[in-house]
């Protein structure tokens, strides 16, 4: 299940792994172990540069709204740290006393330990150098991942609605403008787009046309046929096998996960969704135009 990403206001604290003056130099293995453990647990880590000289003017760390934990082997005499911007309290944790992750976790309990809701960061990213604002992704996506901004430009609006491992919208994008950075293959993973990729994307659109002119109804029919078979079949496991077989080809063609194929709405619903999105966009455009007219009228009124 794809749950929501945590808002930035609840982000976990940042850890500063400190080895400068006042703290011991960590052994390579130990340093890697600590860094790796913290990153795997979802903490961002800053490794500061060592102090250039004893008489160098001090520069303390700076928080940008997140809580800070300074981690190091201080030998019992932990130094005093200050937030340059004066916005965050800084907690100093001595690595010599117990497991570093336990120490950081317990220090961040009052804030927000990372990875609490288990959201997997799988969502589309738009390459605006390639995007032509054709809105195919918006019409195609069944989960309201896409929206339009006040200027009518396509944008990813609900990242957490995206179905993990489903790259279907990037498959229908005629301009290879949609990335899924965690996808296995290029160019969807962000690898360079080659001319043959553009050609093959165009062919995919043609294939969808060949499937009956409407890829949505094809998908829906497949899904409904599978459902019919499922309801009339006495042996449930056999029916399930049948259904899986039926969906296998589409899954292979578009790399769409079963979960998504099983929940496809009707072609009518998809058309309705596209109509609503278009309507919304036109309303926004009209609103923005009347706002502009109002502004210019005000400007004229004031003789500016």
């Amino acid at each position: 299940m794809n749950t929501h990403p945590e808002p930035a206001s609840s982000r976990p604290p940042r850890v500063v792994l400190y080895e400068g003056r006042g703290a011991a130099h960590l052994k390579a293995g130990r340093r890697f172990e600590v860094l790796h453990e913290l990153l795997e647990a979802g903490y961002a880590v800053t490794r500061p540069a060592p102090a250039p000289s004893l008489d160098h003017e001090a520069a303390v760390t700076e928080s940008h709204g997140e809580a800070l934990i300074v981690l190091g082997e201080f030998g019992g005499g932990a130094p005093r740290w200050e937030d340059r911007a004066g916005r965050a309290a800084i907690e100093v944790v001595d690595l010599a006393h117990g497991d570093p992750l336990d120490r950081v976790h317990s220090s961040s309990e009052q804030d927000h330990a990372p990875r609490q809701n288990g959201w997997l960061p799988w969502f589309p990213v738009i390459d605006y150098d390639r995007c032509t604002n054709c809105m195919q992704c918006l019409s195609f996506c069944l989960f309201d991942v896409y929206g339009v901004d006040p200027e009518g430009k396509i944008q990813v609006r609900n990242e957490s609605n995206c179905k993990t491992n489903c790259p279907a919208c990037s498959r229908v994008c005629p301009d290879v403008a949609i990335l899924f950075p965690k996808y296995k293959k290029g160019p969807i993973n962000g690898d360079q787009v080659r001319s043959e990729d553009v050609q093959s994307e165009a062919m995919k659109v043609d294939i969808s046309a060949l499937l009956g002119g409407d890829i949505y109804s094809t998908l829906r029919d497949r899904s409904q046929n599978a459902r019919k078979r499922f309801s009339t079949e006495r042996d449930e496991s056999k029916a399930l096998l049948e259904r899986k077989k039926c969906l296998k080809q589409l899954k292979k063609d578009l790399d769409i996960p079963d979960e998504v194929l099983m929940t496809l709405p009707s072609a009518g619903e998809i058309e309705e969704r596209a109509r609503r999105a278009k309507e919304k966009m036109e309303k926004r455009k009209a609103r923005s135009k009347s706002e502009q007219d109002r502004r210019s009228a005000t400007t004229e009124e004031w003789g500016i």
Partner: peptide
């Protein structure tokens, strides 16, 4: 010995629009 920033996952930070 170089100073660096290490983050768990840029995708996750981007989705959260993390001010960091």
């Amino acid at each position: 010995g170089a100073a660096f920033e290490a983050v768990p996952d840029l995708c996750e930070m981007s989705a959260r629009k993390d001010p960091a």
